[in-house]
Structures are given as structure tokens and as C-alpha cells.
């Protein structure tokens, strides 16, 4: 289904802004994804994984209460794909995370969906 590139993909949205988180959720669900969690704080990964696989995580770098790099590292360690979505520059990324998939806010739907699709193993 060409208009649902994230069909069946289980995705987590980590975004501290309520409005943007919901916009994003709406957008991803429209693309066929199943958003298993939206959160302004670091979620309990184990609990979420217990419910099913996670194909990708969309991460805002600044979660208000702290930066999300440690969570990104955890994802990396567990081989769960992720894409940074942030208002900051890519230069913000620490050395061990440079090269990670990265989108600069504001990003339109297409770019977010494409980025996630290419990392989450969605239909090509």
C-alpha cells in the first residue's frame, strides 16, 4: 500500500511538546503505523517491548527534563532504530551518536514518515 509506508510498524514517539506529539501521532497513524506510546518522558522500554516489537522510535532531543541521548544509546544497544527530531542542530549530537538519523524541526510529514520508513524496515 503505497500510501501507508509504515503499515504494521510499531512506533514510539518521544516528544515533550504535547501538541507536536499529537500531530505526529496523527500523521504516523495516517501512514499506517501503530503508535504504541507517546511520551514527554523516557518510557519504560521493557514494558513496551513486552507488548510487542518496536520497529522505530522518533526522539526529540530535548525532553525538557533532560536530554535523550542516554535513551538513544539504550536503543542503539538494543538495535532498535531511531530518528532524532529536534529543534537543535546536528552539531548537538555527542560523538558516539553522530551519524544517527536526524531531522530538524519543523519537519513536514513526508520527511518524518520517510525517515522512519527507511529505518524501521517498512514497505519500500
Amino acid at each position: 500500500m503505497p500510501d501507508q509506508p509504515l503499515s504494521g510498524r510499531r512506533i514510539i514517539i518521544l516528544e515533550d511538546d504535547y501538541y507536536q506529539a499529537h500531530d505526529c501521532q496523527e500523521m504516523l497513524e495516517h501512514a499506517g503505523a501503530k503508535v504504541v506510546a507517546i511520551s514527554a518522558t523516557i518510557p519504560d522500554l521493557d514494558a513496551l517491548l513486552a507488548q510487542g516489537p518496536i520497529h522505530a522510535v522518533l526522539i526529540d532531543i530535548n525532553l525538557g527534563h533532560g536530554l535523550s541521548f542516554d535513551f538513544a544509546r539504550e536503543l542503539k544497544a538494543r538495535a532498535i532504530p531511531f530518528v532524532f527530531l529536534t529543534g537543535y542542530d546536528a552539531a548537538m549530537l555527542p560523538d558516539d551518536l553522530t551519524g544517527s538519523a536526524y531531522l530538524s524541526k519543523p519537519a513536514d510529514c513526508g520527511r518524518i514518515v520517510n525517515a522512519l520508513a527507511s529505518h524501521a524496515g517498512g514497505t519500500r
Binding site: 511538546d17 501538541y19 507536536q20 499529537h22 500531530d23 530535548n62 529536534t86 529543534g87 537543535y88 542542530d89 548537538m92 530538524s104 524541526k105 519543523p106
Partner: peptide, 16 residues
């Protein structure tokens, strides 16, 4: 960096 962040956030927020 913060200004950049805020402006970008703000635009996103305005949109929402």
C-alpha cells in the same frame, strides 16, 4: 542553541 530550538518549537506549536 536555545533560541534556535525555541523558534523551531514555536513554529511547530503555532502549527499545532
Amino acid at each position: 542553541a536555545e533560541l534556535q530550538h525555541r523558534v523551531r518549537n514555536l513554529i511547530g506549536m503555532v502549527r499545532s
